[in-house]
Computed example of a mutant assay.
Amino acid sequence: MSQSVPLTKESYEFLQEELKRLIKEERPKVIQDIAEARSHGDLSENAEYDAAKHRQGFIEGRILELQDKLARAYVVDLSNLKPDKVVFGATVTVYDTATEEEVTYKIVGEDEADIKIGKMSCTSPVGKALIGHKLDDTVKVSVPSGMKEYEIIDIKYE
């Protein structure tokens, strides 16, 4: 049985747009590129043909991956929740007691996680530790660099 994939509304829409673009724009273009490269003659020494076939394989693989992910996706709707605890899709601001810094993260699925832009995976050690906790809770979590302690100072559902 395949596992469902939690996604934020934005991520679901982004993946749908990527799939649409790959099917309607990229796939026809690579087919055209292959046909053009074929017209140049000997395929055994045709770098353009090899590159186009490689690109076609990548596009087809990505289309299958996106179709599978979207078929298993469920969009997490936060609109009717009260922001009293950290859940998937919540934006949480924490105070790092060691560095005395405030950091804000949006708790997202693995595919949309990008810590550089403040999107933390719900399966990461910190993401898992924060889920379920409330405002003003102190959360201790083991990370590769040791033990971290965070105080939850704000939770928003956007």
Rank of each mutant, 00 (worst) to 15 (best):
K119H: 14
E26I: 03
Q56C: 04
T91K: 14
H40D: 11
E100Y: 11
K119S: 08
G146R: 06
T123S: 14
E149K: 15
E102R: 15
I115A: 13
A71W: 00
A113G: 07
Y12S: 00
I107Y: 04
T97W: 03
K9D: 10
K29T: 05
S39P: 01
L130N: 00
E18Y: 01
E25H: 04
K140W: 00
G109K: 03
K20F: 06
S39Y: 01
G61L: 00
Y105K: 05
S124C: 04
L66W: 03
I23P: 03
P6K: 01
E25R: 07
M147A: 13
S44A: 13
P144Q: 10
I131G: 02
K82M: 11
S2Y: 08
S145E: 14
I153Q: 10
R62A: 01
G41V: 02
R27F: 08
I117L: 10
E110A: 13
I155R: 00
D50P: 00
S142A: 13
G57D: 09
T104V: 09
S79T: 14
K85C: 09
H40N: 12
P83I: 01
E65Q: 12
V75E: 10
E26H: 08
K9C: 03
E25C: 02
G109P: 00
Y150I: 06
E151D: 10
E17F: 01
I155L: 06
E112D: 15
L64S: 15
G109I: 00
A90K: 01
S124D: 08
D111Y: 11
